[in-house]
Design a protein around this nucleic acid. Structure first.
Lengths: 120, 120
DNA sequence: CACTTGACTTGGAGTTACCCCAACCTGCTA
DNA sequence: TAGCAGGTTGGGGTAACTCCAAGTCAAGTG
């Protein structure tokens, strides 16, 4: 499929996909005789994973480490798995941050509640 | 207290506090005769709230809207409350994203599990 | 008293991860 | 044949910091 469909399927934008390719973190993407990129199903699967990793705050640098391993292939699975496991822990940390913030907001909002109507 | 203590207390960095002040989203911070900033307890409370808002993804633009209201004071409480409530909903959305990503990672990792030991 | 140290000041350059735009090319339909 | 939709590249712009150089000032030390 072409880039705009790949964008829709993966969640990334067209621009971001091109940016990812330019910065070397995609495998070689096939080109048609018209110069257009053609994405295989596997390509799109990778893009989708990248979308989720980025969306949840993994820095590009680390994503590059991951995709480099994907490009290398075979024997790198243990290391890839390690990266994803680490990120999963990071997700937990981020959830804790969200929860903590929500508590703070709740307190703050409750504090406002007293002042919305009755104070001069 | 001075900027480095304010940074520790709020969670922000010294640079970020200065950046926030320069971009006009802090109330007037007192200066000593030496030119140093001196933060009141209220200042630090605001900084702390800003830390949490930013940490959970509120864009600076919206934080400015909020702090502008804080500066204006009194009658803006209902609107401030609205902003925090909206952000609280945003937190929920973000948590869903994290959860969804965690599911995807779990599947991916499980997929790797089969390949770590036994495949050639 | 001169000197060093450490915490602060400003202005400005650099970074990350995009986003947008102009100018151009290509294949298809009317 | 012309027009349009959808691609291409290169390069400029943006958000939100982050880091650095060069300078100021107060306090402590020999």
């Amino acid at each position: 499929m072409k880039i705009s469909k790949a964008a829709i399927e993966s969640g990334l934008t067209v621009d971001t996909i091109r940016y990812y390719e330019k910065s070397g973190m995609l495998p070689d993407i096939k080109r048609g005789s018209d110069g257009h990129r053609y994405f295989s199903q596997k390509d799109v699967e990778l893009l989708t994973l990248l979308y989720w990793l980025r969306e949840t705050g993994m820095p590009i640098k680390q994503m590059k480490r991951f995709t480099a391993l994907v490009k290398t292939g075979g024997k790198t699975i243990a290391e890839r798995r390690e990266i994803l496991l680490t990120h999963s822990k990071e997700l937990k940390r981020r959830r804790d941050v969200l929860d903590r913030c929500d508590e703070i907001l709740a307190i703050k909002i409750a504090g406002y509640e007293n002042l919305t109507e009755n104070k001069p």
